[in-house]
Nucleic acid binder design. Structure first.
Lengths: 97, 97
DNA sequence: GGTAGTTACGAATTTCGTAACAATC
DNA sequence: GATTGTTACGAAATTCGTAACTACC
């Protein structure tokens, strides 16, 4: 499980549609579809039900969604916190791109 | 920032030594060293002070360590929760390796 | 000279996007 | 036949480990 996979999962869960999620993530459908399949394979269970309109979360997916959002938020906080700590101590070695 | 990088970071932070952390992670020193350098580069600040005995956490590193542990723990919980949800609904498609 | 981290470099793996496919309405 | 997700496949990018290097006692 990678952070990229979790970002992909959340996007598909929120859009309910691999194509739209891919647009949102600025990648094409196939790699995004593969991210979901890889996650399902790793966890050993489907996360979505494939319906004619797109992708519908299963209970397993609902369970993951909570945690995925929390993880992604925490990654964000971690990044900001470290950058602030760096600024505070004037120890920055690289200016932000 | 990837989960692998965070695992590497925590191991080095706890061991205070790239070589020992590499043994613990069952990889060699160079990739582990690169993980730390990549993280420092991405965050724009050093996380460790290089001392003769090894690697010593800087305040920026201390700040990251808290979040990194929380993220890794949350990933663990997420994995278990989804697997339990799958068992509960009998929807498992792949037996655990 | 021993111990530590880092850089060079080639091989193996992974990941991407285009194109083709499959399935459902 | 239009819309959706998936598989094939070759190219590009990443990541590994061995070997060589650097720095500090």
């Amino acid at each position: 499980m990678s952070i990229t996979h979790l970002q992909s999962f959340v996007a598909v869960a929120e859009e309910g549609h691999v194509g739209r999620a891919a647009l949102r993530l600025h990648i094409t459908q196939p790699p995004l579809s593969r991210h979901i399949l890889a996650l399902e394979d790793e966890l050993g269970t489907p996360l979505f039900e494939r319906v004619p309109k797109g992708m519908r979360l299963l209970p397993t997916g609902e369970a993951l969604l909570h945690h995925a959002r929390r993880i992604l938020a925490e990654v964000d906080v971690a990044t900001r916190t470290v950058r602030e700590a760096a600024q505070g101590s004037g120890a920055a070695s690289k200016p932000p791109a």
